[in-house]
């Protein structure tokens, strides 16, 4: 029996995609479904989570994160707080830095573009573990950064041992509050079992080294994206605005930036998605210490499962993290649609 050409193309198509479907199905889709089940149980890692006898606990694991008072909620909320400050600082700084570098590299009168582009991009392609080792050395208490600060007469902190929050330090420095003895109304109440004082800590000194590292490694990739977008702007458009007598800042504000808007949104979304997932650097550099100020949901979910054998809460945390990321993506899509309409 001979198959028609159409039937043969159907079969060929499925055969061509089959390996990828099998791999992605078995190791992306199926795991997510299994993990949804595990997040509703109290499985401790022994045997299969699907055997009878694994206690089904419903949404208890999620309740532990949001409503039940206890260490789990406190750790989770601390990790969320840390990550909010982390996202809130890393994303704007790396975006502005990437855009600024792209504008300078793209400037017509400067030479050596290829070299500078490569220099800024190189950190992004290297191993996050190796870079973390380098930063541990550079920010060591008698390391390169503190040596440099000493040159300017500043005594650098013990970066990785310093749990003080930057916002606390700033408030204390301005004389608004006494850091050692914060006002009672800030200490007493606060959402999700963390006092307002704790929520308002800001990123710790230790966390700021991880933020610097990430800004330093990812700006290069985003710079390339801005550069590609800048090169797509028609030269005639810029020349026309120059003839109209627009100065440099006006040209940037009214010609260049509007043309870069789609890239800007993309860079912000990619930045938000990846900063909510910070893991490698925490794993290598700080393991959540000091004072849990570098704990992030991704790292907490890992330790809950693999160090404390609480797979239920671990997977619950990862699904909450998933929800946070999806939420941000949807908000971004929605904003983008408004603008394109």
């Amino acid at each position: 029996m001979r198959l028609s050409a159409k039937a043969r193309e159907n079969i060929a198509g499925w055969l061509f995609v089959a390996p990828v479907i099998v791999i992605l199905g078995l190791f992306m889709l199926l795991p997510i479904l299994m993990a949804m089940w595990v997040s509703l149980t109290d499985w401790n890692g022994q045997g299969s989570p699907f055997k009878a006898g694994v206690p089904f606990v419903g949404v208890d694991n999620y309740a532990k994160l949001f409503t039940d008072e206890g260490l789990t909620r406190q750790d989770f909320m601390t990790s969320v707080r840390n990550n909010i400050y982390y996202v809130g600082i890393v994303v704007p700084v790396q975006t502005v830095l990437a855009l600024g570098l792209a504008l300078v590299v793209n400037a017509r009168m400067l030479k050596g573009k290829g070299f500078f582009r490569a220099a800024f991009f190189f950190p992004s392609v290297t191993s996050s573990v190796a870079i973390s080792v380098v930063f541990l050395f550079i920010f060591a208490s008698s390391g390169a950064v503190n040596n440099l600060l000493a040159f300017f007469g500043i005594q650098g902190p013990q970066w990785f041992a310093d749990a003080r929050g930057l916002l606390h330090l700033a408030l204390g420095g301005l004389g608004l509050v006494d850091v050692d003895n914060p006002p009672a109304w800030l200490l007493d109440g606060g959402p999700f079992g963390l006092s307002w004082w704790d929520w308002l800590a800001g990123p710790s000194v230790a966390m700021s080294t991880i933020m610097l590292l990430v800004i330093w490694t990812t700006s290069g990739t985003f710079m390339l994206m801005f550069l590609a977008a800048l090169q797509d702007i028609p030269v005639t458009l810029e020349e026309a605005s120059m003839l109209d007598g627009a100065g440099r800042w006006k040209r940037l504000r009214y010609v260049t930036l509007p043309m870069l808007k789609p890239t800007l949104f993309l860079v912000l979304t990619m930045g938000i998605i990846s900063t909510w997932q910070v893991f490698d650097q925490v794993y290598v550099m700080s393991q959540g210490a000091p004072g849990k100020t570098t704990l992030t949901p991704a790292y907490l979910s890992y330790t809950q499962a693999f160090d404390n054998f609480e797979y239920g809460t671990g997977t619950a945390i990862s699904f909450v993290l998933f929800a946070i990321i999806v939420l941000f993506t949807i908000v971004q899509r929605w904003l983008l649609r408004e603008r394109n309409a």
């Binding site: 993990a35 893991f279 979910s301 890992y302 499962a305 693999f306 671990g314 998933f322």
Partner: peptide, 15 residues
């Protein structure tokens, strides 16, 4: 493509 990698840590281990 949109599934964030960290969400898959424990699920991959399970599978």
């Amino acid at each position: 493509l949109a599934v964030p990698g960290v969400v898959l840590f424990i699920p991959k281990f399970l599978v």
